[in-house]
Simulated scan of single mutants.
Amino acid sequence: MPTVPAGVVVLDCAEPEKLAEFYRELLAAEVVDAQANRVELRASDGFRLALRRDTNATAPSWPRPENSLQAHLEFVVDDLDAVERRIVGLGGRPVETKDAAGPLEERGYADPAGHSFTVRCDVPVAPKLG
């Protein structure tokens, strides 16, 4: 049976170089490929993220319903407060969200280009509600 090796998550944005710097700093990642319209990063745990230029890119409006969340990144961390300070210091911004069902605390943010992501202390096990 053929297998599909792990790929790379790609986010479209107007300025991939600037957004790559945000995620490079946040994830303590390294640039593994930089081209005119695409920058790819790899974190120490192997996670790969690429930022691709799209001159017509518009960020999702999550948590508002119009042009809602299409996909988001989720990071598991050990100190929500410290990570929040780092995100804001790098140019990210908090996004108003509701807590996930159950005992897990999560916080939502937008990167400098408006892509949504969450940080949490554990991997979620409950289904998405709403």
Rank of each mutant, 00 (worst) to 15 (best):
P2E: 15
P2F: 15
P2L: 14
P5N: 15
A6I: 04
G7Y: 03
L11P: 00
C13Y: 04
E15C: 03
E17N: 15
K18E: 07
L19R: 01
A20V: 03
A20I: 01
E21R: 04
E25G: 07
L27V: 15
A28N: 13
A28C: 09
A29D: 01
A29M: 06
V31P: 01
D33A: 08
A34H: 15
Q35W: 11
Q35F: 06
A36G: 05
V39C: 13
D45N: 12
F47D: 04
F47T: 06
F47I: 00
R48Y: 00
L49A: 08
A50Q: 04
A50V: 14
L51S: 02
L51A: 08
L51W: 01
R52E: 13
D54L: 14
T58H: 13
A59F: 09
A59I: 08
P60S: 06
W62V: 13
P63R: 07
R64H: 14
P65Y: 00
L69N: 15
E74V: 09
F75I: 04
V76M: 02
V76K: 01
D78S: 15
D79N: 11
D79P: 14
L80M: 02
E84D: 05
E84Y: 04
E84F: 03
E84T: 07
R85M: 01
V88F: 00
V88L: 09
V88C: 04
V88K: 05
G89C: 02
G92L: 10
R93E: 06
E96Q: 05
E96D: 08
E96M: 14
A100R: 12
G102Y: 09
E106C: 07
R107E: 10
G108K: 02
P112D: 10
G114D: 07
G114I: 00
H115V: 02
F117T: 10
C121P: 09
D122G: 10
P124C: 00
P124H: 07
K128P: 06
